[in-house]
Design a protein around this nucleic acid. Structure first.
Length: 748
RNA sequence: GGAAUGUUAGCUCAGUUGGUAGAGCAUUCGGCUUACAUCCGAAGGGUCAGGGGUUCGAGUCCCUUACAUUCCACCA
């Protein structure tokens, strides 16, 4: 043995050794390991199939692998199911950037061509994430690997949708949705970031019809959709203004007459106490419009351009439209004044940072609170009963808060890269209510009402180049993967929100791996992921998991913190402080990275990690290596040994260490367990026991038992160095089981 | 406006049924002692944010103040 542990040589070999022995597969577990009747299962949070790993991935791989290796050694029937995610919007976004470089956009292609291109692209890169996860030592059962777009997975996901629809929990509705005009898709409210900003607040004058020299003043930060204003509103209890109810004003841009209505949504104290109602472009106004049955006029289209009702301004985008309209209003003398320092919050796209436009679109929603099947209520109940426990500083309260305030979930996305919503719209008699965008034979984009299109094109031509179908909310539809047998139908072009399939991940994976896996491993033991996706993922897994299986998909949720740099700052590409886990693996070894990430970490709490930590843990790996070296050399020199004076106390303490380590791991106190074992190993076993052995106060047998026990305790944390050492010990005939990974956990 | 979390050694953080404060890095001193200089031995350094309370006893429980971080809501 060299005096230094060389991880670059051994890590790959050890992983190959495990794979060769099929050690990650519970169905290949050695007989002498199957001592427990318990099952232990973790579903890996699927990373984007085509993305390289960042530290966040390294954290979850490490923590989950620690749990898995521990339970495997305990003798539990243990499985860790890996997978990757198609990551709908993320991936399409990256792909579109590549198209942009070639001066192309997604609108140059029909749906199926684009889908196939992205599929190819993902295939090319799909090995990246998996390879890197292996480099970190993940003992996941790759024979059970799943991808979110695997045929069997998709089938199960669609079944859930059909069932939800049958139960009345899916509905299609014409509503204001959060739409990003750059990404070209709607989002759920969770994907919208609200950002503080200072914007000019315009005080616009609306002339009274009965006396145009009199004006009603309304404040707005968004003058550009004034074309779509339908009414003004005041609070019915507002004595200053309620005499205006029923009177009419002129729209300052269109000169159309608008009635002033009363609604208690209006805050008399705020602004001028009078609100303009723009149903199509403000969520609150939309609600009021519904309540009072007001017409909906659309001033901004899905491309972010002003529509025809903007007259000479039609075709301008929101920003330049606003400028032009403010100019126009100023000329007309209809702008009273402007508050330049008005602070407000603007919804922006989490992905591209563009301002989100609230646009009225018919979309599919999941009803989260229903009288008979109440998804939210059931999820809360599983928290109440302790069926599911959340680990992570105060996160359970946050989850409860999310659940109690949850709105219906918009699952429609206007992108190609994803699972198609299995819905078909009736074409007959509905031609005037369906708008279609497609590429004609010359690859020219055409968008028109179907009734118009059918005068020039055959339906088959349209289908071949199809990009988007926009059916009015009134158009009848059928839920089906294939075209209904009778009649003429056209398929919905929207795909599901990626999270709709991710939310089903625990059961769709187990239902499609190996016959019997679902019964054997569901509900899973632990769901381990970052606290930042608690509402996106964990909450929704509970909603759909309970709905579909009657059981919460996991009994414990371990939410790890985010990794920060050595100064405690968030990592970001622009700061240049991003840690590339693979670089760390190459420089210090995977064991060092793993240990640095988990030691003294706490669920739900961020952890700062830097070069010094990796170095320290590399040194620790070397320490383990050298302690073993001492034991082996020592053993060779003096093969026989008698019991020594310190042995009894040593064994008592050693057993204590095993008990305590196991207790900490059982309680999911991973960071504490790592710290504890680290200290006992280095500062007790190495500093004291080995020195006592040199002084003949401790027997060689005790030292051998000590090192083998510690190697076992350390294995979940630092699998490579410990397995390497085990192989050395095996050669020396100090140990007997062929692989440490499948060696039983030490007895207490 | 609401909520969560944090404030412990110079730095980054542990400290989970309340019982004489810990680790890594950094600092100082001394050591190549035949497992390890990616090491060993020793040392310095904390009134555990401030205040109040419960208790025989509080970093640990309760109240309160301040500061920090994060999340949610929000209105023209």
């Amino acid at each position: 043995m060299d005096s230094r542990y060389n991880y670059t040589q051994t890590e790959e070999q050890m992983y190959a050794l495990w794979e060769k022995a099929d050690a990650f597969n519970p169905d290949s577990a050695p007989e002498d390991l199957k001592t427990s009747k318990k099952h232990f299962s973790i579903i890996m949070p699927p990373p984007n199939a085509n993305d390289p790993l960042h530290v966040g991935h390294a954290i979850f791989v490490t923590i989950e692998d620690i749990m898995i290796r521990y339970h495997r050694m305990l003798g539990d029937d243990t499985v860790w199911i890996p997978g990757t995610d198609h990551a709908g919007i993320e991936t399409q976004f990256v792909f579109e950037k590549k198209l942009q470089k070639k001066k192309q956009s997604r609108f140059n292609f029909d749906r199926s061509t684009l889908y196939n291109m992205i599929w190819e692209y993902v295939q090319e890169n799909s090995g990246i994430a998996v390879d890197q996860i292996k480099k970190l030592g993940a003992s996941a059962d790759w024979s059970r690997y799943k991808f979110t777009l695997d045929k069997d997975i998709v089938k199960t996901v669609l079944e859930t949708f059909k069932q939800l629809h049958k139960d009345g929990l899916v509905y299609r509705d014409f509503r204001l949705v959060n739409y990003c005009t750059k990404c070209g898709t709607s989002y759920s409210e969770l994907e919208v970031d609200h950002i503080d900003q200072v914007s000019p607040l315009y005080f616009v004058k609306y002339p009274l019809v009965e006396d145009p020299s009199e004006f009603i003043m309304v404040a707005t930060v968004r003058p550009e959709p004034i074309f779509a204003d339908t009414h003004l509103a005041v609070n019915p209890t507002d004595k200053k203004h309620n005499h205006l109810v029923g009177k009419k004003v002129l729209n300052p841009l269109t000169n159309e007459a608008m009635t002033i209505i009363a609604d208690d949504y209006v805050d008399p104290e705020f602004g001028t106490g009078i609100v303009k109602i723009t149903p199509a472009h403000d969520p609150n106004d939309f609600e009021i419009a519904k309540k009072h049955d007001l017409p909906i006029k659309i001033a901004i289209n899905s491309k972010g351009k002003l529509t025809d009702i903007a007259g000479k301004f039609a075709g301008l985008n929101v920003a330049s439209g606003r400028k032009a309209i403010v100019e126009e209003l100023t000329q007309k003398g209809l702008i009273d004044h402007i508050d330049e320092k008005y602070q407000n919050r603007v919804g922006t796209c989490y992905r591209c940072k563009r301002v989100i436009e609230p646009l009225p679109l018919p979309q599919f929603f999941i009803k989260v609170q229903d009288e008979t099947k109440n998804l939210v209520r059931d999820a809360l109940a599983s928290l109440d009963s302790g069926e599911t426990t959340i680990h992570g500083a105060g996160r359970e309260k946050i989850l409860r808060h999310w659940l109690t305030n949850l709105k219906d979930w918009n699952i429609s996305r206007q992108i190609v890269w994803g699972i198609s919503i299995p819905v078909w719209y009736q074409v007959e008699d509905q031609e005037e209510h369906i708008t279609i965008g497609f590429l004609d034979a010359e690859k020219k984009f055409v968008q028109e009402q179907l009734s118009v299109l059918l005068k020039t094109y055959k339906l088959e031509e349209i289908r071949a180049g199809i990009q988007s179908v926009l059916a009015d909310a009134s158009v009848p539809y059928q839920v089906s993967e294939t075209q209904p047998k009778t009649g003429v139908w056209i398929q919905e072009t929207d795909t599901f929100d990626t999270w709709f399939s991710s939310a089903q991940w625990p059961f769709v994976t187990l239902q499609n791996t190996i016959e019997g896996d679902f019964e054997r491993f569901y509900p899973t033991s632990v769901m381990e992921t970052g606290y930042d996706i608690l509402p996106f993922w964990v909450m929704r897994m509970m909603l759909l998991g309970i709905y579909k299986t009657g059981k919460s998909p996991f009994s414990d949720v371990y939410l790890h913190g985010l990794v920060r740099d050595q100064k405690g700052q968030k990592m970001s590409k622009s700061k240049g402080n991003v840690i590339n886990p693979i670089e760390v693996v190459e420089k210090y070894g995977a064991d060092a990275l793993r240990m640095a990430l988990v030691i003294r970490s706490t669920p739900g709490q961020d952890k700062s990690v830097g070069e010094g930590d990796f170095k320290a843990m590399r040194n620790f790996a070397n320490k383990i290596w050298n302690a073993t070296r001492f034991v082996i050399l020592n053993n060779q020199e003096q093969a026989t040994s008698k019991a020594a004076i310190g042995d009894a106390a040593f064994y008592t303490k050693l057993s204590e260490v095993v008990t305590e380590s196991s207790a900490l791991l059982d309680k999911l106190q991973i960071g504490l367990a790592a710290d504890y074992i680290y200290n006992e190993f280095w500062h007790w076993f190495c500093d004291i026991c080995i020195e006592e052995n040199k002084a003949a106060k401790l027997s060689n047998k005790a030292i051998i038992d000590g090192i083998t026990t510690f190697i076992q305790l350390l294995h979940p944390f630092m699998p490579f160095v410990t397995e390497t050492i085990w192989q050395e010990l095996l050669e020396e005939k100090v140990v007997t089981t062929p692989l440490l990974i499948t060696t039983p956990w030490p007895n207490k």
